[in-house]
């Protein structure tokens, strides 16, 4: 089905109607969502705060899109080791091994104080959460892309407005995230993907905060976070992985 959709978009002329743009979003979602498989991967998160240096975190991610749930276990740095996240629907718990408590946190919050948000680790719901306001064909580097302007149709999303670049193969290559007033808050770059049997996993995600940073030598340098994803797998995971008990047991 995904392949048919991709072929359709290859042959579609450069003008698209609003309903086609919505289908394009559905295609973009479907390529990076895994309703038929569990997903696991290791995320290396490098955070650069200008003037404060780099911090590196390593996290194990387990996703089960069919149940809208994910589990994240922090492996590095040692100070945060054993911390974890468990998401179910719109509820997200954060586990702190020091206090041995689960506290609810928000999907829109920053992940480990980086420029990534907790919502960046879940399945993509662009078509469900956003309406396409306009679209045009543009060049992004060597890619022919559709540039879509999106507005959220509910208040539960992290960003109420977005610009999104989707290449002709249906993959999201770049996004710009905006506040309701139109303030540019963040840019996200996804230059490359793994292609595992027609299902795609981002290889690298680069987030650039448009507001946070520091002025160094008279120049404002923005905070950036690079996420490298390794060891992607769609093999089934034990049910117990998606439980509080699992987070409590792996907090070494």
């Amino acid at each position: 089905m995904k392949k048919i959709l991709i072929i359709l978009f290859f042959v579609i002329p450069s003008f698209l109607m609003a309903e086609d743009y919505q289908k394009l979003l559905e295609l973009a979602d479907s390529l990076v969502n895994y309703p038929d498989h569990d997903f696991s991967g290791q995320y290396t998160i490098t955070q650069n705060k200008p003037g404060q240096g780099q911090t590196v975190s390593v996290a194990a991610i387990f996703r089960r899109d069919s149940q809208d749930t994910y589990v994240i276990v922090i492996q590095e740095p040692s100070i945060n080791k054993g911390q974890g996240y468990l998401k179910q629907g719109r509820t997200l718990w954060f586990y702190d091994p020091e206090s041995k408590r689960f506290n609810s946190t928000s999907s829109t919050d920053r992940f480990q104080n980086s420029n990534a948000r907790n919502s960046d680790f879940t399945q993509s719901t662009l078509a469900m959460d956003y309406d396409v306001i306009s679209g045009e064909e543009v060049k992004l580097g060597s890619y022919d892309c559709w540039l879509l302007e999106l507005e959220a149709n509910n208040t539960e999303v992290t960003y109420p407005k977005m610009k999104i670049w989707i290449s002709k193969d249906g993959l999201v290559r770049m996004t710009e995230d905006y506040s309701l007033s139109g303030q540019h808050l963040r840019s996200t770059y996804i230059p490359d993907y793994y292609n595992i049997g027609g299902t795609f996993v981002p290889k690298r995600l680069l987030f650039e905060d448009q507001l946070r940073g520091a002025t160094i030598n008279g120049k404002f340098q923005k905070e950036r976070t690079l996420i490298d994803i390794s060891s992607p797998s769609f093999k089934d995971l034990p049910n117990s992985v998606f439980s509080k008990s699992f987070l409590e047991s792996v907090n070494r």
């Binding site: 580097g141 060597s142 230059p191 490359d192 793994y194 292609n195 595992i196």
Partner: peptide, 13 residues
């Protein structure tokens, strides 16, 4: 620079 590579989706299968 970020998007000028010819092939960026590897078949990792």
């Amino acid at each position: 620079d970020l998007f000028n590579k010819d092939s960026d989706t590897e078949e990792d299968g």
